[in-house]
Design a protein around this nucleic acid. Sequence first.
DNA 1: GTCTCGCAGATTGCATACAAAATACAACGA
DNA 2: TCGTTGTATTTTGTATGCAATCTGCGAGAC
Lengths: 220, 220
Amino acid sequence: MDGSFPIARSSLPEAAAERLRTLIIEGDLAPGARLNERELSERLGVSRTPLREAFRMLAADGLLVQLPNRGAQVVSLSREDARHAFEVMAALEGLSGELAAAHVTDADVTDLRTLQTEMEQAHARRDLPNYYRVNRAIHDRINAIAGNPVLTHTFRTLNARLHALRFRSNLVQAKWDKAVKEHRDMVEALAARNGEKLRDLLVKHLRNKQRAVLETMGEQ
Amino acid sequence: MDGSFPIARSSLPEAAAERLRTLIIEGDLAPGARLNERELSERLGVSRTPLREAFRMLAADGLLVQLPNRGAQVVSLSREDARHAFEVMAALEGLSGELAAAHVTDADVTDLRTLQTEMEQAHARRDLPNYYRVNRAIHDRINAIAGNPVLTHTFRTLNARLHALRFRSNLVQAKWDKAVKEHRDMVEALAARNGEKLRDLLVKHLRNKQRAVLETMGEQ
DNA sequence: GTCTCGCAGATTGCATACAAAATACAACGA
DNA sequence: TCGTTGTATTTTGTATGCAATCTGCGAGAC
């Protein structure tokens, strides 16, 4: 125990940013949409000052772009932008795999196997929401095992930016089956402490995701 | 020509952030220092509102930390933090090398060879300032050739954070000689379009830098 | 002597008012 | 009719004032 009880009283700008982040990712604020400060501040129930600080935070995350004297607008990612983000994320996933294999404990493996079972059950039931939930839990867990907060933060930020694309990956059955299989391989590579293997699996996994996303983006 | 003349009027918050960034990296604002809003706003000649927006930007870059009701303070990186940042940067440098090798043109190679010559001359003259300048130019150039703005931005941000450490790499002659040699190898790997080789060289190069920086950081 | 509590001063947080800039629109002229 | 220019309106940008919170210090209790 460390004896500290940090009450996470988030400030108003942080709360506003969190709310806006959700609105953007859920698509309530569409890509390219201009954000009117007065209107938004009324809708969120905060004044313009904290709202503007929230804008700065989201702009740093790449969810908004701010033009001088012309306010903020929701970022509108081109196909190229998405590709660039995926390229970087693939490199980060690879690192994550190597580090995770180096740091993983037996307890971690046990937990991951449990999650893997849950995932396969969700897959068998064709329970998409739970599949996504567990899927994310597994990836988060691997990232946590890697034990590099800078890596985790960077990855999360890029991921959030891509989610702003609001792609609904058209989960064809074949792809789904394949993804589940890939996850099983990951957990086993981790159990075997095979960093190289895990790296490759994660990079390949992400590349599949990239392909799926870019497909839904169409041409542009 | 595109006929546009975009006057890059940066806003007051941006200008303030830029100024603060310099003050932090140059060490005028020491790690851990608390930033008094009123005092700083007077020194910078702006009011507290744009200053606070600048704080948000720098906090997003990891140069400041903001505590609710307790203002901002210059980040104070632990040895661990630095190690984490370097780990991520190494992965990004590796990616940068692979991409650069895939995209490099003959003109790029010519330019890089020129820079390499400049660097070796600065090295021969023991002209440290110019050595650093050209060194940086070479790395920037490779990064630019990689052609991934997300990568460039992410790398730059992490790099700035490390610069806040204000390490003065104790450039021993042997290490300096080695670094120059490594650069020559990089340019040649790039000329040969050997992505794998360039990746390894860049990762190793960065690892050397990491070692040097962590040495100057002492124990903690 | 040390610890705790409470108060005064200082500092941050937020809202609002005013200034500056951009946008929309109408009137004018080619 | 189309383009341009001037003006009204909207919107963003910045400064400032007040409220909330924190910090430092001294008085009192043990």
